[in-house]
C-alpha cells in the first residue's frame, strides 16, 4: 500500500509561523514571471491600496508545506519518489502581503485508492497573526503503487 488509508481525517498540529518577507515575495514573483509592480515595488503596492508587497496567487504553496508534512509523517507511509502532484487549488480570502505572519495547519481530507495508486487530498489552511483565515491550499497527490 502506497499510503496508509488511516490518515484520512488526520489533522496535523499547526506549523511554526512563517514570516512573509519582501525579498522572498520578490524572489518568488521573479520565479513565476510575475512582473506586476505590486510584487516588487513597495510604493506601488501601497499606492494600489495594499499594506506592503503582494505575494503572487500561488505563493501559499511555499507556506503550506503540505507535501513536506506528509512525507515526514511516518504514519502516512508515503515514499517521496512515488509522489506526483495531481491537482492544486488556492482559495484566497485576502492577499498575502510582506509582513504577514502565517500559520499553516494541514488536514488530510481524503485518501482514495484507484487501481494500484492512491490519491491523497490535503488542505492547508493559512491564518494570520490575528487568527483570521487568509488562504487555503488544497493539494491532491497521486502516490504510485508498486508496478
Amino acid at each position: 500500500m502506497a499510503v496508509n488509508p488511516g490518515i484520512e481525517g488526520k489533522r496535523y498540529p499547526p506549523a511554526p509561523p512563517y514570516a512573509v518577507g519582501r525579498e522572498k515575495v520578490r524572489e518568488f514573483a521573479r520565479a513565476v514571471f510575475a512582473t506586476s509592480p505590486i510584487h516588487h515595488d513597495v510604493e506601488a503596492a501601497r499606492a494600489a491600496g495594499y499594506a506592503d508587497l503582494v505575494a503572487p496567487p500561488t505563493f501559499p504553496i511555499v507556506v503550506g508545506a503540505a507535501l513536506e508534512t506528509l512525507i515526514e509523517d511516518p504514519e502516512a507511509g508515503i515514499d517521496f519518489g512515488r509522489v506526483v502532484h495531481g491537482d492544486q487549488r488556492f482559495v484566497l480570502a485576502r492577499p498575502i502581503v510582506a509582513g504577514d505572519e502565517l500559520t499553516a495547519r494541514l488536514t488530510v481530507t481524503a485518501v482514495r485508492v484507484v487501481g494500484g495508486n492512491a490519491m491523497v487530498t490535503a488542505e492547508s489552511a493559512l491564518t494570520d497573526a490575528d487568527g483570521e483565515h487568509v488562504a487555503t491550499s488544497i493539494s491532491s497527490l497521486v502516490v504510485r503503487g508498486d508496478s
Binding site: A31, V32, F33, A34, T35, S36, P37, I38, H39, A48, Y50, V54, P56, P57, T58, I61, V84, H85, G86, D87, Q88, R89, F90, V91, L92, R94, P95, I138
Partner: peptide
C-alpha cells in the same frame, strides 16, 4: 507549480497587474 504559477500571469496582466483580484485558482496537472 511553476507552470501553474506562470499560467495565471497573463490574467494578472489583464487585471492591470492587480494580482490580489485573483480569489480562487485551480488546475489539474
Amino acid at each position: 507549480m511553476l507552470t501553474m504559477g506562470l499560467a495565471v500571469q497573463p490574467v494578472v496582466d489583464w487585471l492591470g497587474g492587480d494580482a490580489a483580484r485573483v480569489v480562487d485558482y485551480q488546475v489539474r496537472f
